[in-house]
Amino acid sequence: MKDKQTVLKVDNLSISFTQYVKGLKTRNITPIKSLSIAIEAGEVLALVGASGSGKSLLAHAVLGILPGNATCGGTITYCGQPLTESSKARLRGKEISFIPQSVNYLDPLMRVADQVKIGLPRDNADSIQKDLFSRYGLKEKDGRLYPFELSGGMLRRVLFATSVRSGIKLVIADEPTPGIHPEALSAILNQLRKFADEGVAVMLITHDIVSALTISDKVTVLKNGSTVETTLAENFTDNGKKLQHPYTRSLWNALPQNSFFNYKGVSDWL
């Protein structure tokens, strides 16, 4: 890309929740303590980390869809402007699109074609939706079906189709790949790569580090709500000697394809 613009920059983000324990006593839990990432236009950033490391929360914070009892600290900047709740509401679905991690995010009582049409310009929503369906290998008649009538793989593609809009600058994909057969998996990853090649910034949240590496430019590793390391994807090679942080290195080496070596500290990840 010619002009490498930083689309999303998250600095020192913290998220805490207020919970009620025993009647009226409250307590705060802070699943995200200090999280910093940056994504440039035209690049795929893979966000890897164990379950509970705060990957999805980060996505929800950027989109402004955290539950009401959450409070955020730190700063989120989008294209050089601080991202406020009102600008989030304005940008959602128009410049920032979200691919959720579960097919439960589709309305169970709405035909899938209609769900894809939401947010499309009214005049040619029909033709755009048909285009998207054929692009993702969905048949036209599938559009008349309800989510419960489609297979998991097809629903993933429907979710994908909902995220494709003209004017999108940032795509946040929250674990789009689990439970998908290898062919569909590479199709999805290739599509994300294509977004990036068209100049979109892509945040890929995953714990499948191996497949993420096939398309990513950079990798940010999270642990317990903090950023461990951000590094180039090509550094994940040769026993990880180019990786800075021991946690990242042990993460990499613990993979079965590599030495399957269990350093101290990675066991709590596995």
């Binding site: 589709l106 309305d107 009582l109 709405m110």
Partner: peptide, 24 residues
Amino acid sequence: EYIIFAKARGETTWQIIKNHGLRN
């Protein structure tokens, strides 16, 4: 979750009610 997703897609409160709320 589908309401959260609707919000993430930029639907306003009224659109969410109209598109998904009443239906369900």
